[in-house]
Design a protein around this nucleic acid. Structure first.
Lengths: 253, 253
DNA sequence: CCGCGCCTATTTATACTATAATTCGAGACA
DNA sequence: TGTCTCGAATTATAGTATAAATAGGCGCGG
């Protein structure tokens, strides 16, 4: 998990404020974005601060700046979606089943294979961390820990146990996905994380059985996907306003 | 594929130069990095340019800047590894089987599932693009196209056909992985992309058979992984200097 | 001798002013 | 209607200056 440096100085504060406003849809690629000069007026800070903050957001793919055209929000297809800050700002976005589905489809690609690699590569420390995550999940069931933090800890420990830097770097993606997911499961009750299924994954990892770890994790996540797809199909009484993501329906604004 | 904006102005030029130098290991987290003032002297450009470039690299997780400490390269664990520029700069890094393995393990997580999702979600245009990629691969076999570009086109078309923005955004990761991979396969001859196996994936997608598409793509990539692991185990006559990645062996510097 | 507090120096952070460069849009001319 | 030129809009770059953060060294007291 990356140390967040927002808010400690003016530049980072502006990056945070603008980043959230962009990812949450307040500014978008089909609407006018303030010029640098306007940004300085609206948010305070000097021209230098504004330029530096705009450059940081440009580096993350959120903004583009051109002489005479000014500064604009890039289409979402240009955003660096795996950037830890961009991921985190997604938590400011209005809940949407479509977005949750996309996140969970990504988890479906990543996490079974992470479990597979963890079963092959995990060190003793790695396994201890997964075990700790599971224990936290059990504690959370009794109200002694935070459910989503515990779930995140378990899954992130598996990513780390892969020994692969790319998987490790997906920790923020999983964190964000799970925090969005909890909003969904809170809506529909009766769908808590299945601790037994998670424990089975840990057992397969400990047993150094990659294929089994893969299959078990795949099942966990496919179940979530089915649930989400049920929601999208209207089978769970979820309101239509939560079906689509903000860019998919710009006319709805 | 993202439009690359390096070199068109001083700030972007400096970002490109420093980014390459960092990712290729010329600057690293255990060695002194120039102060802003030194950067201005070494690379030219004013203080503003230097600050803006440093901020951009900070936004990508490559650098950190603190009063009095100066500017330093972050440990690789902090780098935004899925950042398109960071990925591209990996091509400047010395070849390493370990790094290729990491990339390919990531592909193993992503691409079978991309094929699965493409089989479920691909539009007619999406399928046409995959088909075009395959045709390019066939053309490349006869010397009428570039092998790696064609391979990239096929795989990226599948990512796009998923309809999922996260998968779509992994195009640079796959591109980089394949460009590194070609260096390996060029070393050991006799291991070109298996066009038939790729065609079978397309057929499964066209047939809307997700599980089959998944399995076929998984096989393609597992085969590459086995080959890489053979190389790592010394079974292919690959020299030891190419086994490890640059950060894994700082003492070897 | 060790720990704590204070001061100084180092480097980034911020502000400001000014000019240069890019590029879009409008108007004029052929 | 198309092309070219010019002016304006906005970013890009340069430079100067001060403020803020903070590391390190030194001195003093226990």
């Amino acid at each position: 998990m990356r140390e967040v440096r927002g808010g400690t100085n003016l530049t980072y504060g502006l990056v945070e404020t603008l980043g959230q406003s962009i990812v949450s849809g307040e500014y978008s690629s089909d609407r006018k974005f303030p010029t640098e000069s306007e940004l300085s007026q609206i948010y305070g800070g000097s021209h230098s601060i504004t330029r530096e903050a705009v450059k940081m957001l440009t580096a993350k793919g959120l903004l583009r700046a051109r002489p005479r055209q000014g500064t604009a929000v890039e289409p979402e297809s240009q955003w660096n979606l795996f950037d830890p800050d961009v991921l985190r700002w997604h938590l400011e976005r209005k809940f949407s089943l479509k977005l949750l589905l996309h996140f969970t489809e990504m988890r479906l690609g990543v996490e079974p294979n992470a479990a597979y690699l963890a079963a092959r590569n995990a060190s003793a420390e790695g396994i201890a961390e997964i075990r700790h995550g599971l224990q936290r999940m059990k504690n959370a069931e009794g109200g002694h820990d935070d459910t989503v933090s515990a779930d995140v800890a378990f899954h992130v420990a598996i990513l780390k146990a892969t020994g692969n830097p790319f998987y490790r770097r997906l920790d923020e993606m999983v964190n964000t996905a799970l925090r969005i997911s909890i909003r969904f499961t809170n809506m529909i009750k009766g769908h808590e994380a299945d601790i037994g299924a998670h424990e089975a994954v840990l057992d397969a990892i400990v047993a150094r059985d990659p294929e089994r770890a893969f299959a078990l994790m795949q099942t966990i996540i496919r179940d979530v996907i089915e649930l989400i797809e049920s929601g999208i199909a209207g089978k769970l009484g979820i309101k239509g306003a939560w079906l689509s993501d903000q860019e998919a329906n710009p006319a709805g604004k």
